[in-house]
């Protein structure tokens, strides 16, 4: 069995003629927490959609456990997705279902478990994210951090092999952020899963990720462990890690000269 659960090889993807990814190579090791970092609009979330088979690459491949995702038919893709859990940026909880029903949803859809077993499993998952006491609430009654934790409980409902997180820290207060960081690491290790996090929060990610990819200009600009990247002399990585406003990623969007725009 290969060490890598997911392999991305020479991946290109774009909308229309514009290429967002221009030959991306990534490997995600089993049991590890890997992060994909980069600026807004660099195509980080798109990589998760490509892994999940929601969109097709222009060329190259994404394979999970040796199976090329985009070569599968719909039932094959659904089979692969049953091995995945995904936490969406704002949770994407079903607003017409209670917290309990949201977590029970994948179990009801994919298993024939009796109600008493579903109840035990839902409460166990909610307990793992610290929200067992909130099982009766509706999504509209939850704070942003709580909604993210419920979505995490739902993502791990069927004990997936792969857990993907899309911007799990966006808009959270420091306490909720610390809770989510801790949960990502703990759940990954407890379930023996492989986790992929898409984020641009440096401090949090560097504190618990095993391996990090930096995406910029459609390619992997840098990769390595948090320690290696902290020591990196690459200008892009330095600018990103130290939050410098100008550098390889310019402050100004490309535009005609200032004088010509102001007709001077």
């Amino acid at each position: 069995m290969s060490d890598n659960l997911i392999n991305i090889e020479n991946l290109t993807f774009g909308y229309g003629k514009e290429l967002l990814h221009k030959g991306i190579n990534m490997e995600f090791q089993r049991g590890k927490v890997s992060a994909i970092m980069g600026g807004s609009g660099s195509g980080k979330t798109t990589i998760l959609k490509l892994i999940g088979g929601q969109i097709q690459p222009k060329s190259g491949s994404v394979s999970i456990d040796g199976q090329v995702v985009h070569n599968q038919n719909l039932s094959g893709i659904y089979k692969l997705r049953r091995k995945m859990g995904m936490l969406f940026q704002h949770g994407a909880l079903f607003t017409d279902l209670s917290v309990y029903e949201n977590v029970a949803f994948p179990m009801r859809e994919h298993t024939d478990l009796p109600e008493n077993i579903i109840k035990d499993l839902v409460l166990m998952k909610l307990n793992a994210v610290g929200l067992r006491g909130a099982y009766k609430l509706m999504p509209t009654e939850l704070s942003g951090g709580m909604a993210r934790r419920v979505a995490l409980a739902r993502a791990i409902a069927l004990d997936p092999d792969i857990i993907m997180y899309d911007e799990p820290f966006a808009g959270l207060d420091p306490i909720s952020m610390a809770v989510i960081c801790d949960l990502i690491r703990t759940l990954n290790d407890a379930l023996g899963a492989t986790s992929i996090i898409v984020t641009h929060d440096v401090a949090e990610t560097f504190s618990f990720a095993d391996y990090i990819y930096f995406v910029a200009d459609g390619i992997v600009a840098a990769e390595g462990s948090p320690k290696q990247l902290m020591a990196s002399k690459l200008p892009f990585v330095k600018q990103f890690i130290h939050s410098e406003k100008d550098g390889p990623v310019p402050f100004h969007v490309s535009a005609p000269s200032y004088n010509s725009d102001l007709a001077l």
Binding site: G52, Q54, R81, R82, F88, A92, T95, P106
Partner: peptide, 18 residues
């Protein structure tokens, strides 16, 4: 429309539910 805008339909697809 709101289910689409709030990624509920995408979430369902990712849970292998049509």
């Amino acid at each position: 429309g709101l289910m689409k805008a709030t990624e509920q339909l995408s979430a369902m697809e990712m849970m292998a539910v049509n």
